[in-house]
Structure formats: structure tokens, C-alpha cells
Design a protein around this nucleic acid. Sequence first.
DNA 1: CTAAGGATTTCT
DNA 2: GAAATCCTTAGC
Length: 188
Amino acid sequence: MSAAERLSRRFFARPADVVAHALIGQVLVCGERAGIVVETEAYLGPDDKASHARFGATARTSVMFGPGGVSYVYLIYGMYDMFNIVTGRDGEGQAVLVRAAHPERGIAGGPAAAAGPGKLCRAFGISRARHHGVDLTASPELFLARGSRVARARVARGPRIGIDYAGEWAPVPLRFWLAGHPAVSRAR
DNA sequence: CTAAGGATTTCT
DNA sequence: GAAATCCTTAGC
């Protein structure tokens, strides 16, 4: 078997909604652990009222305004890490949140171990302390690799979760998932 | 259903 | 400084 093909800068340099869709079916690798991405959400930049980028570049969000292909990991609700990938070009402030994965290798806890963004980080061992601001196109530990192709018809899309405060942006369908996969969040 | 939990941001 | 907010999960 040939070495896994790592996703390149070019892959991540596209708009967040394009990357979020294209990430479904790709392989997330963290050390010895790996799984197939089955749910993502796109955050389009400072104008997107649901995005952390809506306040501009702050101490927390500065990496969002760097080049695509870099990780953005933050803490939510005081206890859960969220794994995001910056997309687009330098300065655009776009990112994709990886919400769920199908465990493939090295992950304890069964099929549901990476169902949900907080559980995904725990299952893969992704932490803010060690994996924030990592270049996924260069890191030997944390990166994305090309998975088997997923037919477009199998990728569903709908509104993002937990962003009711985002006004006109709340209903915009920027969440993507593998249709019918058990690890995908239930819509609210 | 709701409590827990800590950081971030904005407001006074 | 203080307080409200928060892209969640586990446990009643």
C-alpha cells in the first residue's frame, strides 16, 4: 500500500463552504489515530455572524486570519476542545469546524467515540495546548489525508448547529454530513 | 430536561 | 473589573 496522500495547501485555500463539503470522506490523522470525516460546518469570515471571526482578529482568533491549512483549536463551555481548519487565503478569516468522524484506527470507545466536536477531539487526542496553530500541510502528527471518493449525492447539507444568535445567518445551510451516518449530530 | 465548566469578549 | 455569552456533553 502506498503512503496516504496528504491534502495540500491548494485544497484548503478554497472558500470554507467548498472545503467543508470536500472534507466529507477524507481521513483525519493525529499520531497513530485516524478516522473518516463525516460532519463539518463552514464559517465564512468576518461578515458571517455565527463565526468567531465576526469580531475581527483577536488573541484567540488570530490564526483564522492566516493562510488556509492551519488548525484553529479553542475551548468551549469550559471543557470541550473544538477542532477547526482555517481555509481560504491569508487574511480572509474563514474556517471549517470538524464535528464528527468515523473511527478507523487507534481510537478507543467504539463507533460513537468521535460523534460530536468535543468527543472527536477527545477521541483523537487533539488539544488546544498541543494542536492550536499547527500547519496541517506540514505537521508529521496532525493532518488530513485523501480518503475514498464520496458521491456528491451522499453528502447532505443543512443549517449549522447552536448558532441561533446569528440572525440572518442562522438558517444558511453551511453544515455538511455523510447522509445516514450514525455519528452525525441530530438536527435541532 | 438541565448543570457543569473556564475562557473570551464587551460593557460600565 | 464585572458580567453575559458560548459552534457541548453527560447525567438526572
